[in-house]
């Protein structure tokens, strides 16, 4: 009877979005009379930071500071269609739609500015601070505030744009069954170190080191936040979470979330996160979907570490003390 140490490694590829009847998201962008920009979406922010990221993407594309952009995701009945924020698709799908809508709005904005400045719209650029300048002659400029006023009250233009991004449905090839279930894969690798008590079956995760390749991190602090929380959730899936903790009899199962175990602040592994940025070809400013993938590689890494520690393969989640002890017994090790 002893506490045994083990180390496990796992690597994953993780998709962005999915392939049901096609995977679309649409976006609308328009300016207010004072030159702020409104992004209208049905893509819901449930804490993952959708609004912040879409504001950044719109601001970057139009050429204004992020605080000049308001993102409205209030109503899925009236907003432009989105399949939803799931399958790690929000940033990638909605972001691409927002870029297209913002480009169109930017074009109108530059056309109105060109009329005001009596120059060609192709000779104009934005300074990112809320002004439009003539390239090479920055003393000739107009604020976006004034451009919006002119569009609304003088020139009768709508500074607005429509955007949509669609991954078309992929049908399996008849011969091989091959198809494209999703796009734009993110990658991750985790090394986990555990201690297993072979008398009680209890597992302590000592360290998890995670490397994530998630395309361009559009907001590095928010990406880090997602990855830290996701790493914890991966361990939780590996060792704790189930709706039937008291198997084998379903009658003993939990009836509400009080009996749904998760590791608390006292059960944290020493966690390391490293982010690799390889901008994706088809993502908005190179982004991929870091949403779900971050909670996956810890699961096989912990399972492998347990195997390394006590020599048993537990292939049912979560890897509870009971399952470890049963496996040890089956092996005849105890």
């Amino acid at each position: 009877m002893a506490i045994r140490r083990g180390r496990g490694v796992a690597a994953i590829n993780y998709p962005t979005g999915m392939n049901l009847g096609g995977d679309p998201t649409q976006a609308l962008v328009h300016s207010t009379p004072t030159g702020n920009f409104m992004v209208t979406l049905s893509s819901v922010d449930l804490g993952q930071g959708m609004k912040q990221i879409m504001a950044q993407i719109c601001a970057e594309t139009i050429g204004v500071p992020t605080d000049r952009v308001v993102v409205d995701t209030a109503d899925t009945d009236t907003g432009p269609h989105c399949m939803g924020t799931f399958a790690s698709r929000g940033t990638h799908r909605a972001g691409n739609a927002v870029i297209q809508a913002a480009r169109e709005a930017r074009q109108v904005m530059l056309e109105v500015a060109a009329e005001e400045l009596e120059v060609d719209a192709r000779d104009l650029e934005t300074d990112g601070q809320g002004n439009i300048l003539v390239k090479g002659a920055p003393q000739k400029s107009i604020s976006i505030f004034d451009v919006a006023l002119s569009a609304h009250f003088k020139r009768g233009r709508s500074i607005s744009g429509r955007g949509m991004f669609l991954i078309p449905r992929s049908y399996p090839e008849k011969e091989t069954g091959a198809m494209k279930p999703s796009t734009c894969y993110a990658h991750a690798c985790t090394v986990a170190e555990v201690e297993v008590d072979d008398e009680t079956g209890e597992v302590t995760v000592l360290t998890v080191k995670n490397i994530f390749e998630i395309g361009r991190a559009l907001n590095p602090k928010m990406v880090e936040q997602q990855l830290v929380g996701g790493s914890w959730m991966g361990i939780s899936h590996a060792l704790y979470e189930t709706t039937e903790p008291y198997y084998p009899s379903r009658d003993h199962g939990g009836t509400d979330f009080n009996q749904y175990l998760m590791p608390g602040p006292g059960d944290l592994a020493d966690t390391e996160i490293i982010v690799l940025e390889r901008p994706s070809a088809d993502g908005p400013y190179g982004a991929k979907g870091p949403g779900e993938m971050c909670a996956n590689p810890q699961i096989p890494a912990v399972a492998n570490a347990i195997f390394d520690a006590v020599g048993v393969r537990v292939d049912t989640l979560p890897i509870t003390p009971e399952r470890i002890l049963r496996a040890l017994k089956a092996e005849g090790t105890v």
Binding site: G47, Q225, V228, G229, G230, S231, W232, M233, M262, G264, P265, G266, L268, T271
Partner: peptide
């Protein structure tokens, strides 16, 4: 904090 559950952050930032 041990009586408070968080689903998102992994507790460490808290």
């Amino acid at each position: 904090l041990s009586g408070n559950i968080c689903r998102c952050t992994g507790y460490e930032p808290i």
